[in-house]
Design a protein around this nucleic acid. Structure first.
Lengths: 258, 258
DNA sequence: CCGCCGTTTCCACTGAGTGGAATTAGGGGG
DNA sequence: CCCCCTAATTCCACTCAGTGGAAACGGCGG
């Protein structure tokens, strides 16, 4: 009768698969193990269903069950799939080395990110440190879209309709300060249209600027540069912005010749 | 009638979810995009089923569809889940910093891995380089279990039954040289029992030693140390093995006090 | 403009999946 | 040491979500 049709007011899709993915998603950064009860609570799924789906995920190698028999954790498979994503990404392959070089040359942090729902996810984050040995690369880390230069650059790069969709979700998330926040987001988008980059100091004493990378047939990416332990000034912001736009232009050139 | 029962001679599980995961797995490292046809071929699933499941994976944010409309690639979500796995891992959290320190102190590569089916997956791989700026950390990379010191250390750490299961799969994979390979694997396992580590030169001019880390309630891990561009000698192997066993002991001590 | 090949949609069928209820297992306290 | 309490798992009848072969579609090359 129902041909894999809308089951809960959504578009076509496979319910069990969607639910299984939602279970994987319930393991947020910092979470070690989750029991079926906690998963059921977080996802809103019936406990028996969760029990069956977690079993399946264990069989498929996506979850490890803790010998205690009562909880699960993400298995190593998920990082190998993540690795496949990174090595398959033509954008990261093309500009990753350039980012590393730029970070060393300019002595600042360089990052590349894209969106996962309402968060920005780093494909690569090169943290510059004077103690070069500590130079660190983190992939997969999430930062909120609406509060970061990365996120605002992304918003500026996507289609109008999609952007409005996301702005609505931010409203739902941040009950207070909504109006001020949205105004600020729109200001950043104007800045991007005007200057080609936007600047946000999300974390204290960190100055970050970002710009979108829009390519046919690929998701919108955002490229950022940042400096830690600095005092924010217009001169510094402008300088950083100039570095970023120049670097982004070089990246786009390379990417165009794919 | 069938209560989520064995559908293809397997144990209980959810078929659609299993298939969806299999589709994600079809994206191996280095693969950029896959079309539904290619996925159907790789997974052996009917094309219409693949079409529906890929749609679901797009809706769930695990796949991005290429604007060409004909292919998919892994979405950024997979690395954010991968990141969650790494930050949630108590073992990596505990000994990751120790590994970095050890790599710097001994001037060699240090890695931590565990199994994904018949491959070993690095949770962390710290590559030492005299040019410290190039020090690189890769997570998620896979190496074959049967050919590496990491894999053999893992095999030595797991239960007998599980090991025999895996050895059977190696036979299936490597048609030729099977007997010699299995003998070699068993020799490594003996070495582990005797010396606490095993040495394998899988790649030319790389000497690697590894040892298992077995903890209650956690998967078996393997810790390795390696040196590039060296000539293999017993003296060097012994030295490396001594460093490794000492370091592993320190790690186990820390991990015991969790 | 017209085939051609791969992808998506359609559709009738049915067994895979569901979730509330019953059962089992664990672990904490008396 | 055993019993209770809590949480996970299994059971089961029901039914609709999922299936896959076939038909329709659509983009691309000629």
């Amino acid at each position: 009768m129902a041909q894999a049709r809308r089951y809960a007011g959504g578009v076509d899709g496979n319910r069990s698969l969607e639910r299984g993915i939602e279970i994987l998603r319930a393991f947020r950064p910092g979470v070690d193990t989750l029991g079926n009860g906690e998963i059921a609570e977080r996802t809103g799924l019936p406990r028996s269903t969760v029990s069956r789906l977690t079993r399946t995920l264990v069989n498929s190698g996506m979850l490890d069950e803790v010998r205690n028999q009562r909880t699960y954790r993400l298995a190593a498979s998920v990082i190998s799939i993540g690795h496949a994503m990174r090595t398959g990404s033509p954008v990261l392959n093309a500009i990753g080395p350039m980012m590393r070089a730029e970070s060393a040359k300019r002595r600042l942090n360089v990052g590349l990110a894209t969106a996962d729902r309402t968060m920005m996810v780093y494909l690569e984050s090169i943290r510059y440190s004077p103690r070069a040995a500590l130079r660190n690369v983190v992939a997969g880390q999430q930062v909120p879209m609406e509060l970061t230069s990365l996120g605002r650059a992304y918003l500026a790069g996507i289609a109008e309709a999609e952007r409005e969709q996301l702005l609505k979700q931010f409203k739902r998330r941040t009950a207070a300060a909504t109006k001020a926040l949205l105004t600020d987001v729109r200001r950043s988008i104007s800045a991007l249209e005007r200057d080609g980059y936007c600047a946000v100091s999300w974390q204290p004493a960190v100055l970050a600027v970002a710009t979108p990378i829009v390519l046919e047939g690929l998701p919108v990416y955002a490229l950022n540069m940042s400096l830690q332990n600095v005092e924010r000034s217009d001169a510094l912001t402008n300088e950083l912005g100039a570095y970023l736009t120049a670097f982004a232009a070089k990246c786009k050139e390379v990417l165009a010749g794919r």
